[in-house]
């Protein structure tokens, strides 16, 4: 199925969710959905094959929720200690995803996970991130996330867990 039709279906579903399934609302909704689709088309991006795996998505959601909880707890632990123990540093990480939506997705996910915050792509395929505590296992965390993202987008993961 072409991507544009998937986007159309997603937008339609979102509209029906928002309006609690009122079909009469489509009189207003369809023009705006068309406008949204047009704005999507307007953004000329290189064709990029995207595939999803349902099972991978489920596992990703579980992983994401667990890690968010861990991230929040990590902050809370540090904050409530009498002395704040931090060891902030910048960290360079080699990206395996080529430039495109998946890489952006990966970068945004990093910022929501415990102790890491993506800053910028400093050189070609090297991500600079900021870590709260460079004594922790940053590389393992990142490669686990990488693996989950691979599963979500049904990609073969060509870097096994370290």
């Amino acid at each position: 199925m072409p991507l544009i039709i998937i986007v159309f279906i997603l937008l339609l579903a979102l509209w029906l969710l928002l309006t609690s399934g009122d079909l009469g609302s489509l009189l207003v909704g369809l023009p705006f959905i068309m406008l949204a689709l047009w704005s999507y088309r307007l953004q000329r991006h290189a064709p990029y094959p995207l595939t999803f795996s349902f099972l991978g998505a489920l596992r990703f959601v579980g992983f994401f929720l667990r890690e968010s909880l861990r991230g929040g707890l990590d902050i809370a632990l540090r904050v409530w200690q009498p002395r704040v123990s931090l060891s902030v540093a910048f960290y360079e990480y080699r990206l395996i995803f080529p430039q495109g939506p998946i890489r952006s997705f990966f970068m945004y996910c990093i910022s929501l996970l415990p102790g890491t915050l993506s800053v910028c792509v400093s050189e070609k395929d090297t991500l600079r991130l900021h870590v709260l505590d460079d004594r922790g296992a940053v590389a393992e965390d990142l490669s686990r996330l990488e693996q989950r993202v691979c599963e979500l987008f049904a990609l073969p993961c060509y870097k096994r867990t370290l």
């Binding site: 928002l18 207003v28 406008l35 949204a36 953004q43």
Partner: peptide, 19 residues
């Protein structure tokens, strides 16, 4: 990274406007 995101946010904003 920001432009990639605009791809998703702009349609959402337009849809929300319609809503």
């Amino acid at each position: 990274a920001f432009s990639q995101l605009a791809v998703w946010l702009v349609p959402l904003l337009i849809l929300m406007a319609g809503y």
